[in-house]
């Protein structure tokens, strides 16, 4: 299992060299919220991995090796968390070196949004035809980024009951609640993807 996770690092060795310059671009542009930089940084490795995994040959190889389909998917979901943590460490250090202030909350928001985004898009990689997926994911990302905030604002203005409910919660409860909701969604996504993958033919 660990070997499956390590596979991404071997595959993406060269890509990883572009990781720091990639983050630097966002830091230098200097108009992005640190949470956004963390989000982008976390997306880098897991989604890049899918450019390999969407290929039929990769699935034939992995499924011919002594792994179960359950393990292959588990490695994807656990690996994403692991690589995200690593990406956060590198990003934090880079931000620190370039003297850009950030808080733990930024990391939490970036990580939370990543998990949420991953929960909705990972299953798609196993449903959609290869070749279309990257496009679909980019579109989903942009649509969410564009429509997300207005929708939240709309909800906040028109469904005051929710706003009041949220405002009434203590910060701690709010964070705990959000974390729980996101983790639950991620877990559901994991289960759904496993079921889809087990039914696939290669």
């Amino acid at each position: 299992m660990f070997n499956l996770i390590r596979r991404d690092a071997i595959l993406q060795k060269k890509m990883l060299l572009t990781f720091i310059p990639f983050i630097l671009v966002f830091i230098i542009i200097d108009s992005h919220h640190p949470a956004f930089i963390f989000l982008v940084a976390s997306i880098f490795i897991p989604f890049n991995a899918y450019s390999y995994d969407e290929k039929a040959e990769t699935n034939i190889l992995l499924n011919s090796l002594p792994y179960t389909r359950k393990e292959i998917i588990a490695a994807r979901y656990l690996g994403s968390i692991l690589y995200t943590l690593l990406a956060f460490a590198v990003t934090s250090i880079t931000l620190f070196i370039f003297n850009r202030p950030f808080t733990l909350t930024d990391i939490a928001i970036g990580g939370g949004l990543f998990l949420l985004f991953a929960a909705f898009t990972f299953p798609l990689f196993y449903i959609l035809k290869p070749g279309h997926i990257s496009m679909v994911v980019i579109i989903i990302f942009l649509v969410l980024a564009a429509l997300g905030p207005p929708i939240v604002r709309f909800l906040a203005e028109h469904f005051t009951a929710i706003t009041i409910f949220i405002n009434d919660l203590s910060t701690e409860t709010l964070y705990m609640g959000t974390t729980l909701v996101i983790l639950t969604l991620y877990a559901i996504s994991w289960i759904v993807t496993t079921i889809i993958y087990q039914r696939k033919a290669f």
């Binding site: 070997n3 390590r6 596979r7 071997i10 595959l11 060795k13 390999y52 040959e57 990769t58 034939i60 190889l61 011919s64 090796l65 002594p66 792994y67």
Partner: peptide, 20 residues
């Protein structure tokens, strides 16, 4: 070829070997 075409044999061995 089912092996990652961008990788060299050494890296492929590092991915496949530990599986067994």
């Amino acid at each position: 070829n089912v092996f990652f075409e961008g990788l060299n044999l050494k890296d492929i061995k590092r991915i496949v070997g530990p599986a067994y």
